[in-house]
Design a protein around this nucleic acid. Structure first.
Length: 278
DNA sequence: AACTTTAGCAACCGCCGATGT
DNA sequence: AACATCGGCGGTTGCTAAAGT
């Protein structure tokens, strides 16, 4: 039957978001929430498709986002979770407050993957690479895709050799500190692990379904009337930077603790790459 | 200094599952 | 039950800056 595109391509702006668009989207969502992404661009006065707005919000504008590189601890957590969950970035992101699936996915592809390979670990299976070479199983992209799309059980039974299955079901659940160990002992099987890992509170937490982190107030209100309610949720909290009338809010949130340099870079990027918008 | 290659990241695309009619 | 719509997810692309030659 086919599906209609989420928006007609004609008249829809694409490419990098401008500060002006960010401001529009931000203030709209902060006052109205995002009950229906499809309607957001129209109501916010943006020439974007709803999908694009959602992405921009979740990956960049959300006030609870952390910015900057993942810490070592976060990185380790990502590795452990990836061993357990595969490429289910949204699930992994759910365990790292303030991080987005896109951010984690990017960080995985650009940093962690290489790191693991350098350490002699297959980033797909988390198996030592030399061991992997002896196995007929390939590590092609299609394998990754199939793996990520299929269920855990299916993946273990059909796509992975037995030793991998063992690793995924036991070693993969090793606590963070032992994953480094796994890496450093890549030559030998480091799976001193047992099912007792599941007793580990941290591992248990990691294996839980999505954490209900969502007490984020902007998720809970959907009408203009709720704005007051939102601002009263935390009376002691400082004024929101995106409050209407505050002109420096955009600069404030773009900085996100990254320091002045990043701000300057951002500004120059906007000016040079999208000068027509200013 | 000029050019090429690599790295990093934001954004897009297409698919899927859930939900509504 | 069949279809339409939406939100969300994961893979991929494209652009920019940095590093290398």
């Amino acid at each position: 039957m086919g599906r209609q595109p989420c928006c007609d391509k004609l008249g829809v702006k694409r490419g990098p978001w401008t500060a002006e668009e960010d401001k529009k989207l931000m203030s709209f969502i902060m006052t109205n929430g995002h009950c229906c992404w499809r309607a957001v661009p129209k109501l916010a006065g943006l020439l974007r498709c709803g999908k694009s707005c959602r992405l921009r919000w979740t990956n960049y504008l959300r006030p609870d986002l952390k910015r900057g590189l993942l810490t070592d601890a976060e990185e380790q957590l990502v590795i452990d979770l990836h061993a357990k969950l595969g490429n289910r970035w949204s699930k992994i992101a759910a365990k790292l407050p303030g991080r987005t699936d896109n951010e984690i996915k990017n960080h995985w592809n650009t940093h962690i993957k290489k790191k693991l390979i350098k350490m002699g670990i297959d980033p797909v299976t988390h198996e030592p690479l030399d061991r992997k070479q002896a196995s007929p199983t390939t590590t092609s992209q299609s394998t990754v895709t199939a793996e990520s799309k299929s269920g855990e059980a299916t993946r273990q039974q059909s796509a992975q050799p037995d030793d991998v299955v063992r690793d995924m079901s036991a070693g993969g659940a090793s606590p963070p500190e032992s994953s480094t160990n796994t890496a450093s002992t890549a030559g030998g099987s480091s799976s001193s692990s047992s099912s007792s890992h599941y007793q580990d509170p941290l591992v248990k937490w990691l294996l839980e379904e999505d954490l209900p982190t969502g007490d984020e107030p902007w998720l809970n209100f959907t009408a203009v009337n709720d704005v007051d309610e939102f601002s009263s949720i935390s009376p002691a909290a400082p004024a929101l930077p995106w409050d209407v009338g505050m002109t420096d809010w955009l600069l404030d949130y773009q900085d996100f603790g990254m320091g002045e340099s990043s701000l300057l870079v951002d500004a120059s990027m906007v000016n040079s790459s999208n000068g027509s918008n200013f």
